[in-house]
């Protein structure tokens, strides 16, 4: 899933400070799963905004909505009514959400309430980690099913570098050396020969480096 985390309240208050009528818009997709932008988080953020406005002696005017998804044009319709009288929208979807709102509602000011952090998964309750960089040409089977592009600090395809120590990456003792994990796994799989092959330069055209990407599914187009 896309993992995101909420921006600090002070930053959000500063963003929406000039605007009176606010809409907080959540999303039932990935950000609900990672507890950053679902219905519950919309309620919490809206309450925080109201309290802050009251403290400043203002009458709060904050509405709430949580869309099925903010990354699909058809669900944008759910905003049409509620957005009409709003001065600004604070979207707590991943950054796709506020961009969709901006694209659809020309006259509305939109703010991102979250920092979209990575494509990843949860390790335990409340702990998320990065697993994919969306390079557009998956080859993790070459690495025991683990991705060195996303999970090695230097994205080395022929690791581990000289900074691998006791299973940890040189940048932090909190970061696993994915090449140690790859090594251990290939060892268990009896595929150590993979480690002796030199992996040549990667073609990054399928990655962001090739420019903004688009996928067209002819079989699904109407």
């Amino acid at each position: 899933m896309v993992v995101a985390e909420r921006k600090p309240l002070n930053e959000l208050l500063e963003m929406v400070q000039p605007y009176k009528k606010i809409l907080v818009a959540g999303c039932k997709g990935c950000v609900t799963v990672c507890n950053a932008g679902g219905k519950k988080e919309v309620e919490i953020l809206a309450s925080e905004l109201r309290i802050a406005r009251k403290k400043e002696g203002q009458e709060p005017d904050v509405k709430e909505i949580t869309l099925e998804r903010q990354c699909d044009p058809e669900y944008m319709d759910q905003l049409t009514e509620v957005i009409k009288d709003r001065d600004a929208v604070l979207s707590i979807a991943c950054s796709v959400g506020p961009q969709y709102i901006a694209g659809r509602f020309d006259d509305k000011v939109v703010f991102p309430g979250l920092n979209t952090t990575f494509i990843g998964g949860s390790l335990e309750h409340g702990v998320f980690a990065e697993f994919c960089q969306a390079c557009g040409a998956c080859g993790i089977h070459n690495f025991g099913g683990l991705c060195p592009i996303a999970r090695c600090s230097k994205s080395l395809l022929n690791g581990p570098c000289g900074g691998s120590s006791k299973g940890k990456c040189e940048i932090s003792k909190e970061v696993d050396c994915v090449w140690q994990l790859i090594y251990d796994r290939l060892n268990r799989l009896g595929q150590m020969d993979r480690l002796t092959r030199v992996i040549p330069c990667k073609d990054w055209t399928t990655s962001r480096d090739g420019g903004p990407r688009k996928t067209i599914r002819e079989d699904l187009k109407l």
Binding site: S155, L156, N158, C161, V198, P200, W204
Partner: peptide
């Protein structure tokens, strides 16, 4: 950072 290549690929 860049890391378009790694050190092995630089040798190549």
């Amino acid at each position: 950072n860049v890391f378009d290549l790694d050190s092995m690929q630089l040798i190549q």
